[in-house]
């Protein structure tokens, strides 16, 4: 039976939500292939995680548990995944397009001598050929390209976090666990982590419920202070277009789009953002988009649910005032 594999990204026994998102889309792909969803879990003392992985839709879990895999390192992880894929021959292999996943996938695909499509935003099965159709933004997000890998298996893709929704969790589901023993040594890892400096303040854009984003129209750093105040009042995060980040108005962590983060908040405010594909690719899955722009022709209005033609600052400050009054009363 054809298997759709999902790499389970975990650090310190905490699973990255993108792995659940991939288990969700993998179920759909497996159904179209009359196949099954399998998860690949690699690390040290990771067995407590299997219940959670079954609950999100895996039917089978391949586990490699080894001390050398206790934290992510390229060579041992690549080795473990390549070994499993050569032995069990999946049809499709999906990996989250996170920092870790992108580091990992290139090595695995090369050793398997198969194709790998990066940063995919849409996945489906071609009804005729049964090949995987992998769509991604290209040329800095100016166009979309659909990529196929017809003659090599597995068909591999890295998929951006937040492109697909997290599936419903079904408690009590179980399946088959296949544990692989592997010879791994500290020497083969080649690198050693000798320290870690955690980020002081993390911007949790990808999983924020509210994002207040600004672009070229904001005009400078001062403008972003207003957006920060609005975001604060709504318990949200501040987002930005590539232009705003490259102009030095706000740091890269805030960037939404093809070269930044993909987001899907409940409400996305786009202030002074024209809406080039490269930006839209990162936010078009938001539940509700409110766009404010002075230019009635701005492409952002075509994907917005509510569009306001006018001065962003007037809307933002009036909204701040209204929210403050509401709190006061």
């Amino acid at each position: 039976m054809k298997e759709v594999w999902v790499f389970i990204e975990q650090e310190e026994l905490k699973i990255h939500p993108v792995s659940f998102e991939l288990l969700g889309i993998a179920q759909k792909l497996a159904k179209d292939l009359s196949g099954k969803v399998s998860a690949v879990l690699v690390g040290h003392n990771v067995k407590p995680l299997v219940e959670e992985i079954f609950a999100y839709g895996a039917e089978k879990i391949y586990v490699v548990d080894h001390k050398v895999l206790s934290y992510y390192r390229h060579i041992p992880y690549v080795y473990a995944l390549t070994y499993l894929a050569k032995k069990y021959k999946p049809e499709i292999f999906l990996i989250g397009a996170t920092t870790l996943g992108r580091d990992l996938a290139g090595g695995v695909a090369t050793l398997l001598e198969t194709g790998l499509t990066a940063d995919v935003t849409e996945l489906s099965i071609d009804p005729e050929t049964k090949n995987l159709l992998m769509t991604r933004p290209a040329y800095g997000g100016n166009i979309m390209a659909t990529i196929v890998c017809p003659n090599h298996r597995p068909q591999m893709a890295t998929v951006r976090p937040r492109v697909f929704p997290i599936p419903e969790r079904e408690e009590g589901k179980i399946g088959e666990v296949i544990e692989e023993k592997m010879e791994l040594t500290e020497e083969m890892a080649g690198v050693e982590r000798i320290g870690f400096l955690p980020k002081e303040k993390t911007v949790n854009l990808e999983y924020a419920d509210i994002i207040v984003a600004g672009g070229k129209g904001i005009g400078g750093k001062e403008g972003f202070e207003i957006l920060k105040e609005l975001a604060h009042l709504l318990n949200g995060e501040v987002g930005a277009s590539r232009f705003a980040v490259e102009s030095g108005w706000i740091s890269y962590e805030h960037q939404v789009g093809q070269t930044g983060k993909t987001v899907r908040p409940k409400v996305y405010f786009a202030f002074g953002i024209s809406g080039a594909i490269q930006h839209r690719a990162g936010m078009q899955n938001s539940d509700f988009i409110i766009a404010v722009n002075i230019d009635p022709e701005a492409p952002i209005f075509k994907i917005a649910d509510l569009g306001i033609i006018g001065d962003w600052k007037e809307v933002a400050t009036a909204l701040i005032r209204a929210l403050k009054n509401r709190r006061g009363s």
């Binding site: 001598e113 198969t114 194709g115 790998l116 499509t117 159709l133 290209a138 166009i143 979309m144 390209a145 659909t146 990529i147 196929v148 890998c149 017809p150 003659n151 090599h152 594909i277 839209r280």
Partner: peptide
């Protein structure tokens, strides 16, 4: 090259 571009489009 195992991968092929099947289609290019502006959404």
């Amino acid at each position: 090259s195992p991968t092929q571009v099947k289609k290019v489009f502006t959404p």
